[in-house]
Design a protein around this nucleic acid. Structure first.
Length: 415
RNA sequence: GCGAUUGUAGCUCAGUUGGUUAGAGCGCCGGUUUGUGGUACCGGAGGUCGGGGGUUCAAGACCCCUCAAUCGCCCCA
């Protein structure tokens, strides 16, 4: 018989278990706790959408749309796409359900996203993000609240040390268009000296040349006009209010006038929380204002701000999580003892104490299991104990062992 | 999509200029201890050397192809 080959996981996917799972969980739980403090409602969307939802909103020329989407035809011949980001899907849901009535609307979600990219550290084909959006608010206070949320999240995860908030404004549509034209003009004048990548960017997305890592591009980039010269009075005032708000909330930030974001829908505020501890994947949380997105999806003009953060990336920055074992491991030995143990375990669990049963092997084997599981106590119940209505409770830290009557077990283990 | 490095036991890795039966540590199983863990000692199982093809008397090692991982570019969380 031919040997069956073991299947391999799909490239860029991961099975998250053990310590990685603890890290993942800690990130999500912290996020869920803090988003409630800020009054964000949870929302769940489908993981796939009609392809047009992403193609229209992100910008047809962006890499995500042109080469990184997982798109496929379903049996009815419709083109569907696994979501590569949250924002477009949230906006679609907003329009589909007529959520205008709830504006301004603070929404948060988290879950898997899919991009067909070359895997690297902190970059996967199926990856996971946290996401927070405020829809229907054109006030800078919304930007400030969102950034405070992000800042508090990173602080409570204990990873704010070494992570900096870089902030920029892309201006309103008028400012952005004027700046863009000026940039195109500037870079066209120096086209011959630009790197090949930047020549391509000049045609596709000239703002991104500002991000170029090619050393030869640096002098040209440094000499490029900055947004500040093209900001309208309104856009300038908006940015000033955002930065003042951050200052009064004690959120540390640095201005990065070359910071632009990948997708076409960004306006005004753009920001990234960046670390140098993850190699080339330095952005740990990023977002901005996307006042034009709803219209791109055929809806009315509805301003919005939002950010997303990579769960895996945040998890990698966390201190090693403590593995906490159960309060007790039960070791039943002999006739009728398993049933008695089950009953006691039920009482413990209803009292909020965690416990498991070691039901295999000799005493030594079971003690080893309890120790390896990191249990605080072992509860031994043999035929002698059962007959006397007691259990032997051994504290695995101190090594002390004593007998406890059934009714006193919850109290004995609770401390 | 491009470039570089790597792939040997469940895990982390040795393996000399190609040469007998491929090793170690940890983990796992068993024993010293038939109802008592952590430490120690003894024993055991476990590998078609990522996969396929080639060179050679002989390949874990050399060559080609392929798959995967890691790092960088692109882009992005």
């Amino acid at each position: 018989m031919a040997k069956i080959q073991t299947p391999q996981p799909v490239r860029g996917t991961q099975d998250i278990f053990g310590e990685d799972q603890e890290r993942f969980q800690q990130v999500v739980e912290t996020f869920e706790r803090i988003r409630r403090l800020y009054g964000f409602k949870g929302v769940q969307m489908p993981v796939f959408e009609p392809t047009a939802v992403f193609a229209r909103s992100l910008g047809e020329t962006t890499d995500v749309v042109s080469k990184e989407m997982y798109s496929f035809e379903d049996r009815g011949g419709d083109s569907l796409t696994l979501r590569p980001e949250f924002t477009a899907g949230i906006c679609r849901a907003f329009l589909s359900n007529g959520w205008q009535q709830h504006m301004p609307m603070k929404l948060s979600t988290h879950g898997p996203l899919f991009r067909y990219e070359r895997p690297q550290k902190g970059r996967y084909r199926q990856f996971h993000q946290l996401d927070a959006e405020i829809i229907g608010a054109s006030e800078p206070a919304a930007d400030v609240e969102l950034l405070c949320f992000a800042d508090q999240l990173l602080k409570e995860l204990g990873i704010d040390d070494g992570v900096t908030l870089q902030l920029n404004t892309l201006g309103d549509a008028e400012s952005r268009d004027a700046w863009r034209s000026a940039l195109v003009e500037h870079f066209s004048d120096h086209q011959a000296e630009l790197s090949d990548d930047s020549k391509t960017r000049l045609a596709k997305n000239p703002l991104r040349i500002l991000d170029s890592k090619a050393p030869n591009d640096r002098p040209i980039v440094d000499a490029a006009p900055t947004i500040d010269s093209y900001l309208t009075a309104e856009a300038s005032e908006f940015f000033a209010q955002v930065t003042e708000g951050l200052n009064s909330c004690n959120v540390a930030w640095t201005r990065d006038s070359s910071l632009v974001r990948g997708f076409d829908y960004y306006r005004h505020t753009a920001f990234e929380f960046v670390t140098d501890r993850l190699g080339a994947q330095g952005t740990v949380l990023g977002g901005g204002r996307f006042d034009g997105l709803m219209e791109a999806l055929g809806g009315p003009h509805i301003p919005a701000v939002g950010w997303a953060a990579g769960i895996e990336r945040l998890g990698m920055l966390l201190d090693a999580p403590e593995m906490i074992g159960p309060n007790a491991i039960f070791v039943p030995l002999g006739e009728g003892c398993e049933a008695a143990a089950m009953k006691l375990m039920g009482e413990l669990r209803r009292s909020g104490l965690s416990c498991e049963m070691a039901y295999k092997g000799n005493m030594k084997k079971r003690m080893q299991k309890a120790n390896a599981a990191g249990a605080a106590h072992v509860v031994i119940i043999g035929e002698n104990e059962l007959a006397n209505g007691v259990v032997a409770v051994k504290n695995l830290t101190s090594g002390d062992q004593r007998e406890i009557v059934f009714d006193g077990l919850v109290e004995a283990l609770a401390k």
